[in-house]
Design a protein around this nucleic acid. Structure first.
Length: 415
DNA sequence: ACCCCGTCCTCCACGTAATT
DNA sequence: AATTACGTGGAGGACGGGGT
């Protein structure tokens, strides 16, 4: 387009100093023409008009009996019920919430980088209503139409708690920056709780997957396999192409991708909840151990001890020994030194190799400072030294500390 | 009475991962 | 023109036991 044409076009947008005269009178009111409206409509997408602008909305419903991977969507109810039975603290706890309060949310944007250069072109969410899951996607038809996009989104939303995958770091900050740019024209952002499923997934499965991205969790944990999926990184290009050509063809694949991400959020929340609460009968010892350590990290010592002791009582594998190792620290902190001592002694003798060194050192500490058995302390220190050599652990600090410990104990014993 | 040392705890700085 | 949570590792302070 020539510069002259551009300027001509812009003329219409210039508002001259005639405050009494509404803008509409400067240019004739034309019913907007939506390119490819029939294609959109044939896919169930409906326009949403606001003033002289519009965005597009696609709504779908699922039955709660529908499967997504190995779970039914309706099992979200069981998860929320289970949380409401649970006595304990956890960042993913839905205690006090109803299943309708959860708002499964995912966006597609024009890129990863932050700042105002990025726009969200698709806001997708799902929530339970009655015996259905309602899924809605609000589509930005062109870069300038954010006001109807956010208006339609914010007038519909009614929720207590966001459920996202990495949404605390990505989706929601994006929504906030876009919102501040147009906050004069749209409703306020509500406040809410936020379950971000990324961190829990990472905690539980990072050792068994090289990347804990949602698509991997879907495949390996939720048993959901996509066919024909457009990867997220193509979304920006597809959107730019759509903005240029107006043909929504590629956008339907992006919409499907977003839709499946949201369904995965639902069942991932189910699965994570079942893991944390110990409801899944197929849970591995490793997962039980990690859940116990998670409660330990969170400071819910009571739940941590409960989970770890439970693991010990039903398994004798290496995870059970690792549980004893974690519990020993717990008992030491509670000044129950003899239990701590017994657990570490087992770890030292039959535990996983990577824990034996630390167990020896802890046994040496307990022997020296709690039980005043310098002979034993020296013996454990020597064993620690052997472990270090055998393992070829080269940590200067550990080595230095150990030599100091040996020296000190020999001095004490010489008296 | 004082100090040194070992231990434990809290806080902070830095790197990493995932999101499109 | 990014953000958040998390893991790790080190710094520094509190505390207490033991030595001088």
């Amino acid at each position: 387009m020539s510069l002259k044409n551009k300027l001509n076009r812009m003329k219409n947008h210039i508002v001259r100093d005639k405050p009494d005269q509404p803008v509409e009178h400067l240019e004739p009111v034309v019913r907007m023409e939506i390119p490819f409206l029939e294609t959109w409509t044939s896919h169930g997408v409906k326009p949403y008009y606001l003033d002289e602008d519009y965005c597009l909305i696609l709504e779908k419903t699922y039955k709660l009996s529908d499967y997504h991977g190995k779970y039914r969507l309706g099992q979200i109810k069981d998860a929320v019920d289970a949380w409401n039975q649970f006595e304990g603290t956890h960042p993913l706890s839905a205690k006090g919430l109803a299943v309708e309060d959860l708002f499964f949310f995912d966006t597609e944007t024009t890129g990863l980088g932050g700042g105002t250069g990025n726009t969200i072109f698709l806001l997708g969410y799902a929530k339970v209503k009655g015996d259905q899951l309602i899924l809605r996607q609000h589509i930005l038809p062109r870069p300038g139409s954010e006001i109807p996009l956010y208006h339609s989104f914010l007038e519909k939303v009614d929720y207590n708690t966001l459920v996202t995958y990495n949404g605390k770091a990505f989706d929601w900050p994006q929504v906030k920056t876009r919102h501040t740019l147009i906050r004069e024209h749209v409703p306020k952002l509500p406040s809410f709780g936020h379950f971000d499923l990324f961190h829990g997934s990472r905690r539980l499965w990072k050792s068994k997957m090289d990347s804990v991205k949602l698509s991997n969790v879907e495949k390996e944990i939720l048993d959901f396999h996509r066919t024909d999926d457009v990867p997220g990184y193509l979304a920006p290009m597809i959107y730019f192409d759509f903005v240029e050509r107006k043909d929504p063809e590629g956008m339907f694949k992006v919409l499907l991708h977003n839709e499946l991400d949201i369904l995965s959020l639902v069942v991932l929340y189910v699965h994570l909840s079942f893991q944390i609460l110990g409801i899944d009968s197929t849970q591995s010892s490793d997962e039980k151990l990690l859940v116990g350590k998670w409660f330990d990290y969170l400071g819910d010592k009571e739940q941590a001890v409960k989970k770890l002791e439970q693991l010990i009582s039903e398994s004798a594998g290496p995870e059970s020994l690792a549980a004893k190792h974690t519990l020993a620290f717990q008992y030491k902190r509670l000044k129950n030194y003899s239990t701590a001592y017994d657990y570490w002694n087992e770890v030292r003798e039959t535990g996983p190799e990577d824990l034996r060194l630390e167990a020896c050192i802890e046994l040496a500490k307990l022997s020296e400072h709690q039980f005043k058995r310098y002979d034993k302390a020296l013996m454990f220190s020597e064993k620690a030294y052997e472990e270090m050599k055998e393992r070829a652990v080269s940590n200067e600090k550990v080595s230095y500390d150990l030599e100091k410990r040996l020296e000190r104990l020999e001095r004490k014993l010489a008296k």
